[in-house]
Design a binder for these strands. Structure first.
Lengths: 175, 175
DNA sequence: AATAAATAATACATTTATGAAATAAAAAGT
DNA sequence: ACTTTTTATTTCATAAATGTATTATTTATT
């Protein structure tokens, strides 16, 4: 009989992936089933988060990445960040930040101006309209985001927070 | 003074996001900082996993999604799955599975044939070349994947597995 | 048996994301 | 002061992913 994964009864939608990974582990001895499964699980959850957020954001004229940019700006002193800082805050590639900002600018949600001190830099700032928009959107998206984690109690959320940070720490040490 | 997150010392690269989310929580009382942070953390980790995998896969002519499709086929009886089963196993959208299979077919790594019993279905099968390719690739990708989780001990990996499945369980219950 | 409803896969148009090269300004080295 | 190197952002070509509509086949209903 095949060894089952720790929480096999949970997450029916992950069952097909589980089954394939179990068989691959049988066929390929060096296959590190537990870490590969963690990678697939993370991917699953991230996709779900993005999908749900996108649905809530669609009729607000944004997707989850544009929203992430807006939130990071909203959470900045002066509601201003440079594209590089947006890259750091969102983990998006710089070319994507440029594209997203182009779109937010078209919608009048941000402004762009060259930094007076260091003229290589650009200051991206939330406009009044942008601030208004993000305040409208936040309740919706926060509610949806919360639902994703609704089954976790407080201790489990803290535990997940801790573990994910530890993974990131490990990723930072990779070549 | 601002309350710090549970594991603030970990994961330097997440610090900019942390700082913005903290300030947003101050400015917008209904902002559920802990769950929103979990969502961002998950996104960060998933992006890191994909980036690292892509780097390892590039000179094998694949990206992480094409690789996922190959692995799921490798882990199937007969090394055969229908596109629908690939959708379930990878969480990719069906249109994307079609596109990826087109590419794998061009590379001669899979074959496609209409199911004899139910002619709506297509059986996607790993070719000999595909099997050879995935066997070559696996050690590399497994090593890279393992590195992402290198800082977690066995108990922590099991815990993370459990928590992610519980999140998926919650996502399944969402409208 | 004929028709309607459901399922499977793909095609097409569009959006989203990336890598690599280009541009521009500042900082460092000589 | 002058050249080189580094940093910041954007441009451009291309790849990856998605939503919606379409086609084909099977299953259910009458």
């Amino acid at each position: 009989m095949t060894k089952s994964t720790p929480a096999a009864k949970l997450a029916k939608s992950f069952a097909p992936a589980d089954a394939r990974l179990a068989l691959t582990a049988q066929r390929f001895p060096a296959f590190d089933r537990e870490t590969v499964t963690l990678a697939r699980l993370t991917n699953f959850v991230a996709k779900g988060l993005a999908n749900h957020a996108n649905r809530a954001l669609k009729h607000h004229g944004l997707n989850h990445t544009g929203y992430a940019v807006m939130v990071m700006l909203f959470g900045s002193s002066d509601q201003t960040l440079t594209p590089s800082q947006l890259v750091d805050a969102t983990h998006e590639k710089s070319a994507n930040i440029t594209r997203i900002c182009d779109d937010l600018l078209r919608q009048g949600l941000i402004s762009r101006e060259v930094d007076a001190v260091d003229r290589r830099k650009v200051q991206v700032r939330l406009t009044t309209a942008g601030e208004k928009r993000i305040m409208e959107i936040l309740p919706d998206v926060v509610a949806v985001t919360r639902n994703n984690f609704a089954l976790l109690d407080t201790a489990e959320r803290l535990q997940l927070d801790y573990l994910l940070r530890k993974v990131i720490e490990g990723q930072e040490q990779m070549p």
